[in-house]
Simulated assay, not measured.
Amino acid sequence: MYKVKVYVTLKESVLDPQGTAVQKSLHALSYEEVSEVRIGKYMELTISKDEGDLEKRIEEMCEKLLANTVIENYRYEVEEVVSL
């Protein structure tokens, strides 16, 4: 069994209005040291078995559904989970 942690973030060239709103709210709460906020997504997938090339399958999932590769970047970490 595998646990896959997927991180999706907007590309640097894409404006992040949600991040800007959070930054302004932090400034309103006197956290002026925050110079930029970028909002992203985090997902955990549990994969029961390796159906061939696991890395390739994860990349397909990210590119077909989990990330919009036109405006987002993604990265992932794979961790093998040992059942007791």
Rank of each mutant, 00 (worst) to 15 (best):
M1L: 13
M1D: 14
Y2P: 07
Y2D: 02
V4K: 11
K5D: 11
V6M: 03
V6R: 05
T9R: 13
T9F: 09
T9W: 12
L10W: 05
K11I: 01
K11H: 00
K11F: 04
E12L: 13
V14S: 01
P17S: 04
Q18C: 03
G19W: 05
T20H: 13
T20C: 14
A21I: 02
V22K: 05
V22L: 04
L29R: 00
L29G: 07
L29N: 07
S30W: 05
S30A: 15
S30P: 06
E32M: 13
E32C: 09
E32Q: 14
E33Y: 15
E33G: 11
S35H: 15
E36A: 15
E36R: 14
R38T: 07
I39W: 00
I39V: 14
G40V: 02
K41Y: 02
M43R: 11
E44D: 08
L45E: 08
I47K: 08
I47D: 02
S48L: 15
D50P: 11
E51D: 08
E51G: 10
E51L: 14
G52P: 04
G52T: 10
D53G: 07
D53P: 05
L54S: 07
E55V: 11
K56M: 09
R57V: 13
R57P: 11
R57E: 08
I58R: 03
I58A: 02
E59N: 15
E60A: 13
M61F: 10
M61V: 09
C62V: 11
E63N: 02
E63P: 01
L66S: 06
L66A: 00
A67D: 00
A67R: 00
N68P: 05
N68L: 03
Y74F: 04
R75T: 10
Y76N: 05
Y76P: 06
Y76W: 12
E77I: 12
E77G: 08
E79G: 10
E79Q: 14
V81F: 02
V81M: 08
V82L: 13
S83H: 15
L84S: 14
